[in-house]
Nucleic acid binder design. Structure first.
Lengths: 262, 262
DNA sequence: CCCGATAGTTCCATTATTCAGAACTCAATT
DNA sequence: AATTGAGTTCTGAATAATGGAACTATCGGG
């Protein structure tokens, strides 16, 4: 029961290698030519060629007329289902909407995945447009309210293990270092709220609170995010309570919704 | 150059088998136990067990505490990128927003994938909530405005090949049969507009127009959708023109955006 | 407490896929 | 025409996937 913790690297054989390729292509910020991929994927040409062929055949990648590979649409299809039916998201949704209506700001639900936060849902205010902008995105755990809130529910060793491999990129003046992160986590455990005071992006602040299942199979958080000129420090304090309350409500929903098992 | 058309089934070896499993789990409407999957996947127990293990290890599936498999969050991560950077979507976006503002109704951009339409983007009106609801979803080609519009730009044989394997499920009184579909496609080629007159869902209508790249590597459509009480038949006619115009604008954007290549 | 199910996991010799490198094609460049 | 760069195809050798069976839980009675 201690084989995990840090080294979660099992062998996934062929699949693992293909996933690395998918990662390369989806992480790039433009479609890649065969040679571009060849340069970063550690594979011989012939092998890579077949692998890309298979991925393309399955619709996971797409090959445009110029021989450039881009993420495939099948990924969208898979994800739409993954999202629509996510148990936690479904439970949380009404509470997120309520919190959005109370605060008028954007509300996020995120979940911890390794040392990243993946946003599961986002409820925006009146802005007519843009959706999906954030959902599914993985963000670093150390500079998001949701990430810090999530870390606060884990035991110290678990936190240490998770962030051991992370390099603390300095996004803004307020971005955490390893030390300040650990001390903030201690504070969050006390207060029940995490704050992002322009640590990831200048001009953006947020208040978050941890959400987790009893067995910690789900560890994440809810947050209210907005521009610094609206989310003054006093405002953040004021909303700390409803955010915590929303987190509580989601957690009790999870107990009911996921309860009658195990 | 005629090996394709109908039989696009190439061998993708191991990957193909794993994708079948992913399809099974993502298409189910609840998490599945090992035995459930065993019943539908045509695999021996040992093999299936390892395959599911690999998928889970990669985060494509998730195994909850009760031994039930659900779609994994990694799918979201992949999709977020696939979507955010989709070239066609990026080009179309401003035109979709403009069309939404003109009509006040929901605007969709969809693309043809085999015999299905996958929605690439959706721009809604004031409704504060729900996004992502449609994006990535695959819908049958024969009963959506976007689907019919897309078919209209393809040659007859191509259309025939695509819908040859399709069973025409009767969603409403107006749902097309093979015959009526073909004759409507002929009309769409004349008028430049496809309509959905409550063919998929009672009370929902839409006007669409085809959008495609010059080489037909992208075949899709734009549509304006709304409830029948607002989208009267006259209203549909009225909006046929701006929808066609939006489609035109997107296509000329594609010529510029994707032009200086090939 | 033991029995028989049902559900899930592990093992291992066999077999099929993938691998890696080289040879080849194709197109653009000089 | 010769040269380079980019992509594709081919092949025996290496490796990973396969599938059947044996194994281990876990559960619900009797």
């Amino acid at each position: 029961m201690d084989k995990s913790d840090i080294a979660d690297k099992k062998e996934t054989g062929t699949l693992g290698k293909l996933m690395v390729l998918l990662d390369i292509v989806t992480h790039a910020d433009a479609p890649m030519r065969f040679t571009d991929i060849l340069a970063v994927a550690n594979q011989p040409r012939g092998t890579l060629h077949r692998q890309l062929g298979h991925l393309t055949e399955e619709g996971l990648l797409e090959l445009d007329g110029d021989g450039r590979y881009a993420p495939g649409l099948r990924l969208l299809d898979f994800a739409a289902r993954s999202w629509a039916r996510n148990e936690f998201r479904l439970i949380a949704e009404p509470h997120l909407v309520a919190l959005q209506q109370l605060t008028g700001e954007t509300v996020h639900l995120g979940v911890l995945r390794g040392a990243a936060v993946i946003y599961l849902d986002k409820v925006e205010g009146r802005q007519p447009v843009r959706m999906y902008s954030q959902i599914g995105n993985a963000s670093p755990v150390y500079c998001t309210g949701v990430g810090k809130a999530a870390l606060s529910v884990l035991a110290d060793e678990r936190v240490a293990a998770l962030i051991s491999g992370v390099s603390f990129q300095r996004f803004t003046e307020n971005t955490h270092t390893l030390q300040t992160l650990l001390s903030e986590i201690a504070e969050i455990r006390q207060s029940g709220n995490a704050f992002d005071r322009e640590e990831h992006e200048v001009g953006i602040r947020c208040v978050a609170a941890p959400v987790h299942s009893e067995d910690l199979s789900f560890v994440g958080g809810v947050s209210v995010t907005g521009p610094a000129y609206r989310l003054t420090l006093e405002r953040l304090e004021e909303w700390a309570i409803p955010v915590r309350q929303a987190a509580e409500n989601i957690m009790s929903g999870m107990r009911i919704g996921l309860g009658p098992r195990r």
